[in-house]
């Protein structure tokens, strides 16, 4: 290496030498994976037998049976109503929770409890929350609505807070310097910076609530899920497939609508 004008005087430690600790951890992970397959009794014969059952189920699902379309549509309408109400209410509350959880605008005294509340909202799967609400307020759409409000707050209040934490404080500083009140500072320097992202999160949450609103019915919280569940229990697989197709159509239609909404509000 004389041509570089550098003459090494000792051997340096190879920076790429094997790290036995990380290698050992990888071996442990692989070992645990093998153990789980073993302990759950997974085998190829079990899998192929299962596939055979799936084949008979699919056979019975076709052709889909839309003859009970009135039942189908009343369930669908209830799911839609649950999704819309819970999204509107959930997003409204999330605006405030998100703002109060933003650490660049609020003191820790406010953000810590609000963040804690949001974390609690997010810590249970909607199914568990739905069961709790069915037990406390009774069967029906109200339990579903409350469930999805909680789910909405848990999810988008956090996203709102993160969006607010990423804004440019220079713009906030400039509006503060005009002597604007706190609320006006929020309205004129924070909101313009996060508005289009809020629209994106909100359409996403409505999408998520639509899907979840077809699910909460399985535990009795109203909507299409209840219809789906009883069809399963009565082995009406052709009606099940009709319900599933309806749900897919609903989600696709919403996908189309939300793209339209987003293209209106973005940029």
């Amino acid at each position: 290496m004389a041509e570089l004008g550098v003459t090494p005087v000792k051997d340096y430690k190879n920076p790429f030498s094997i790290n036995w600790l990380t290698s050992g951890l990888w071996i442990l992970v692989a070992g645990y994976l093998l153990y789980t397959v073993q302990s759950l009794g997974l085998s190829w014969t079990r899998f192929s037998e299962g596939l055979h059952h799936a084949g008979t189920l699919l056979d019975r699902m076709f052709p889909p049976n839309f003859s009970r379309w009135e039942l189908l549509f009343s369930g669908l309408a209830e799911s839609l109503e649950i999704a819309v109400i819970s999204s509107v209410v959930g997003i409204f509350f999330s605006l405030f929770f998100g703002l109060f959880a933003a650490r660049n605008l609020m003191s820790n005294l406010v953000t810590v409890p609000v963040r804690g509340f949001i974390a609690v909202c997010r810590s249970f799967h909607p199914i568990i929350v739905a069961i709790l609400f069915v037990k406390s307020v009774g069967f029906g759409a109200l339990a579903g609505i409350l469930t999805l409000i909680i789910a909405s707050i848990g999810f988008i209040a956090k996203l709102f807070a993160e969006a607010i934490e990423e804004i440019s404080l220079k713009q906030v500083e400039a509006i503060r310097a005009t002597g604007a009140s706190f609320t006006s500072v929020i309205l004129f320097s924070v909101l313009p910076q996060v508005f289009s992202r809020f629209i994106g999160f909100s359409t996403y949450q409505l999408d998520s609530n639509l899907r979840n609103s077809t699910m909460v019915g399985i535990v009795g919280a109203g909507g299409l899920g209840g219809t789906l569940f009883s069809a399963f229990q009565r082995f009406d697989y052709d009606f099940v497939s009709a319900i599933l197709i309806t749900i897919i159509a609903l989600i696709l239609f919403w996908e189309f609508l939300s793209n339209v909404v987003r293209s209106i509000f973005s940029e």
Partner: peptide, 24 residues
């Protein structure tokens, strides 16, 4: 660095100078 509110229009930015004189 000017600190304009980038997503507001130019005239809105000028008018923010009046926010100290207005209620929220």
């Amino acid at each position: 660095e000017y600190n304009l509110v980038e997503r507001l229009s130019v005239i809105e930015n000028v008018l923010t100078g009046r926010l100290g004189y207005m209620s929220s």
